[in-house]
Design a protein around this nucleic acid. Sequence first.
DNA 1: CTGTTAGCGCGTTCAG
DNA 2: CTGAACGCGCTAACAG
Lengths: 355, 355
Amino acid sequence: MTTSEPGDAKRPTRRSSNPTVHDVALEAGVSPMTVSRVLSGGKNVRLEVQERVARAVETLGYHRNENARSLRPGHRSGLVGVTITNIANPYYAEMLRGVEEIASAHGRRILVGNSNEDADLEKQLVADFIGRRVEGLIVVPSSAGDAAHLQLERLGGVPVVLASRAVGGVSADTVLIDDVEGARTATAALLAEGHRRVAYLGQRSVFTGRRRLEGFTVAHEALELTPDEELIRVGQQDVGSAERAMTELLDLADPPTAVFSANNRNTVGAIRAIVARRRATAGTGAGGGGDDIRVAGFDSFDFADIAPVRLSIVDHDAGDLGRRAAAMLFDRLDGGAQPVEPRVLELPVTLRDLF
Amino acid sequence: MTTSEPGDAKRPTRRSSNPTVHDVALEAGVSPMTVSRVLSGGKNVRLEVQERVARAVETLGYHRNENARSLRPGHRSGLVGVTITNIANPYYAEMLRGVEEIASAHGRRILVGNSNEDADLEKQLVADFIGRRVEGLIVVPSSAGDAAHLQLERLGGVPVVLASRAVGGVSADTVLIDDVEGARTATAALLAEGHRRVAYLGQRSVFTGRRRLEGFTVAHEALELTPDEELIRVGQQDVGSAERAMTELLDLADPPTAVFSANNRNTVGAIRAIVARRRATAGTGAGGGGDDIRVAGFDSFDFADIAPVRLSIVDHDAGDLGRRAAAMLFDRLDGGAQPVEPRVLELPVTLRDLF
DNA sequence: CTGTTAGCGCGTTCAG
DNA sequence: CTGAACGCGCTAACAG
């Protein structure tokens, strides 16, 4: 044993490291336990002693070690894990803010990870979060790969809320937006105006994309129409590829007269293509394609209301999505007795004409 | 050797709680220490035993408790705290993604808090983060209130990197973008085109706002001009108020012929006002204000390149800001011997004409 | 190659 | 009103 200091103190007064209750106790001339008591409200401690301790805390710049604290039985970590497929996406950023707002109100902090649509990465994140003893998880599930790691049993009983997307085979609390209805309404509006060649710009591999394509199809079927496969373009992830896809559509022998776009990246790309075409054919009197194309799209964006096309937007509040998901989680965490079976919430959307 | 248990187990086999090394050890028929060894690479453990342990881990759904782990001396928490004035702002969202990317590459997770431009909230967040033993902090300092809590001494030696904004009186690593130069260049471009009544839309209370206004002023002074105070509008936080401010400017007896806007909210608002005015005076031949106003603004946005005005944009990469800030932090954390004095990095911007 | 001991910072339990 | 002891989960350091 033998660090064997001459004046051997049990604790060799470490300057560099963080001060502990012990250090504060020394400084205040009391026992660690008294410090602990003061820190948790000061019940049963003389006022004078409380002040002495408070002063010591101040002098030493003491911060109670939450990690050590959460080690005690019964104590919770105060942490919630959030994994998002792309933090930089303004939509999810707003969702994240909603989550943070509610978590904060419930005295929790959020650990945030970016899964980049990669199920393996997501799995690692979740495992790490559980290792840090998060009390719950909010997950925007990645579209690619297996999702077995989200099974409740695999999570060691940590409750999870799926946001924005559901996952096949995983039964958990889920908050979605009404993708099908939004897409259906928007498409129906285009068809009602008489358009019969309506293009679809979006995804098919992502959950929301599938649902929005379904709404697009359903709207057609309600009028006993069948969407032309040639007009369905999927897989564009960014504005650039969306613009190219739209340009291709405009170049068709029988181009669309309207387009429904399943997300704002595609909407912006489509409008760019339309504007570019309009400029190109400006003086020619050709009128070839770009003019008076009607657009409807999911999700708003900065300039939606002064876009130079006739535009309708399927609106919904990402912040609300985050708040609802968080509320659902804390309902399980803090609420009393909960129903065991998972709940699915589908948030409504509204169609807004911007012309 | 004493499993020593007729009746009394030291550990009463808790089903509900998370399994521990102890539980895994029991399941695998080894000691906790062996489990620990396997978990940290399996050095000096027979392969057969490793497999047995691995199986036990799998069966029990064991996750190593990182909080307990980080309690051991020398061990670090693997956490970095990030406070942002507004997570939902796409600009900061992208910055956050940059931070996450680098943190992830360095094996750290990020704790994220929203300060909402409130110094008190920011202080609480920072205190809480330190309580959780974050290894470092990345802070977008709030504009309102005192910032004493960001002093290195108050932080108990936890390194902090200030991002996007500096703070008076706080000397810490800082990553800024070149606000002054960006604003100067953009304004100079307008003046070079002959404009003599150039408006300013932005802030004065926020650090970046002050710097951008400075650039605006400097550009004028370089030509021995003085900006007209009447054309300087500050305090608009959102698109709506920016639009109103711009409308007021257009209503002046001697309206501006160009406008420099210090952020994208203001730019979008300005363009809206201009477009609205243009529409209102369309048939009248009055030409009153809205037409051919020239715009230059800080920060890009969705539709910048098809905006219906002559527009220039001061561009910079928020993701890069985040990556640089994080890199600076990890330079101190993981890099060997570091310079003690704080470093300030000013990222360049570029002016881009979109017409 | 494997197990035992001890203690990281904190707070509950029980004595004084 | 205050303090001592114990253990939360984990892993260096030291036996064996």
